[in-house]
């Protein structure tokens, strides 16, 4: 029964992601990541034996632990990469703000040069 639930979740997830990409609300690498998650959910729910097989070979006696550990690890990794991306964004915003201030001042100065009589206010 749980496998069916997970299958449905996976299916809904893939449909939502494709929909969001189509609407232009989710961009490139993020969409790929989420689609991968959905596909893995579908595959694992269709063939739950995969987990048992892998767990057996890495020596885990209770297979669901493997699933949980892997899931949490991937969530943590994903969160770290999100913070990396946010830091990059922050850096870009700061650089742009600084650049904008410099360009604005330059623009004002050149406007003043053009009209020596009138004060630009």
């Amino acid at each position: 029964m749980t496998t069916l639930t997970i299958f449905i979740i996976g299916a809904l997830l893939s449909i939502s992601i494709l929909y969001l990409v189509r609407k232009g609300k989710l961009h490139g690498p993020y969409a790929t990541w989420w689609l991968m998650v959905a596909v893995i959910a579908i595959v694992l729910s269709s063939f739950p034996k995969i987990i048992d097989w892998v767990a057996l070979h890495v020596g885990i006696t209770y297979p669901p632990t493997l699933l949980l550990v892997l899931a949490i690890s991937f969530i943590l990794i994903r969160m770290l990469t999100m913070d990396l991306a946010l830091s990059r964004k922050e850096q870009k915003i700061r650089r742009l703000t600084q650049r904008l201030a410099m360009l604005e001042a330059g623009l004002e100065a050149s406007e003043k040069d053009k009209s020596p009589g009138g004060k630009a206010d």
């Binding site: 915003i93 700061r94 703000t97 600084q98 650049r99 904008l100 201030a101 410099m102 604005e104 001042a105």
Partner: peptide
């Protein structure tokens, strides 16, 4: 005197760096 105006608050260092970038330019 010259004054650069930031359109988002960047804090003391962000503002100082703006001046440093200006100087480099």
């Amino acid at each position: 005197l010259a004054c650069l105006r930031l359109s988002i608050q960047l804090g003391a260092w962000g503002a100082t760096q703006t001046g440093i970038r200006y100087a480099k330019r």
